[in-house]
């Protein structure tokens, strides 16, 4: 490693659900502007891990530092960290009682304390960027899944986060809508956003990721650039996983 200023450092993260040891010492370092893809079988702890990065889940052992701020147990700085970390969920989770525009401007207005006019201007730019400008005044329930997910991305971006987390952003979509969301994510990566993405989209991982991690049973089994990950996996577990999804 030549770079020395990572934006995410997670060391030996352990988490238990009661007696179930769901994260068994996960390590991850993400450099600025890096795109990291997490893969692994269902139930291996990918969601749990990515959600510890913005404190939606707590953990019992280890250390996580986001942009120099430590996610500590007392969680006094929890909102400060979450403002720097955007998250996109599998189920979109747009607010159904607010219009698309209100969904996007909510946090900038109430958390960043921007004036409404500025928040709306930024929101409109973002809607244009995710190619959905004409839907600004509709409610989420009136949009297709692909459109909703693009709004969800715009909503997260409106806070101008330094990191974007994606937890299977295309898994709940009909096949014909997967592409429109991936296009947006790809352009986001090209613009230099730091991204941690849980996905099974092999094409996206191969072309966009700088590094791919394979998780299994709460640990990182293998970690490699896409080329090597797909062509020359080192671990048997990775070979087995790839044979199942390719």
């Amino acid at each position: 490693m030549t770079e020395t200023n990572p934006i995410i450092v997670a060391t030996e993260v352990h988490k238990w659900y009661d007696t179930f040891h769901v994260l068994q010492g996960v390590n991850l370092t993400v450099e600025r502007q890096e795109v990291v893809v997490l893969m692994g079988p269902s139930g291996s702890g990918k969601s749990t891990f990515i959600r510890t990065l913005n404190a939606l889940e707590d953990f019992q052992q280890g250390q996580i530092t986001i942009d120099g701020m430590e996610l500590s147990a007392d969680l006094g700085n929890i909102e400060a960290i979450r403002q720097e970390v955007g998250m996109v969920f599998q189920q979109f989770n747009l607010f159904p009682h607010l219009t698309v525009l209100q969904n996007i401007t909510l946090a900038p207005i109430w958390v960043r304390r921007w004036p409404r006019s500025k928040a709306e201007e930024v929101a409109m730019q973002l809607l244009e960027r995710v190619d959905i400008l004409e839907q600004a005044h509709k409610y989420p329930g009136q949009l297709s899944g692909g459109q909703q997910q693009r709004v969800a991305i715009a909503r997260a971006l409106a806070m101008q986060p330094k990191i974007m987390l994606f937890d299977e952003p295309t898994s709940a979509l009909d096949p014909e809508m997967v592409k429109e969301v991936l296009v947006v994510m790809r352009s986001l990566a090209e613009s230099g956003m730091t991204m941690v993405v849980v996905t099974h989209e092999v094409g996206f991982a191969r072309e966009v990721a700088h590094r791919i991690l394979l998780m299994d049973q709460g640990t990182v089994v293998e970690e490699a650039p896409p080329e090597q990950f797909f062509q020359h996996p080192q671990e048997d577990r990775t070979k087995l996983f790839l044979s199942q999804i390719l």
Partner: peptide, 20 residues
């Protein structure tokens, strides 16, 4: 999921309740 999305945007607990 609604609560998680609101928290993830950095909204403090009272605003999560009030706005979402």
């Amino acid at each position: 999921g609604q609560i998680e999305a609101a928290k993830a945007l950095g909204l403090p607990p009272l605003l999560v309740v009030w706005l979402v």
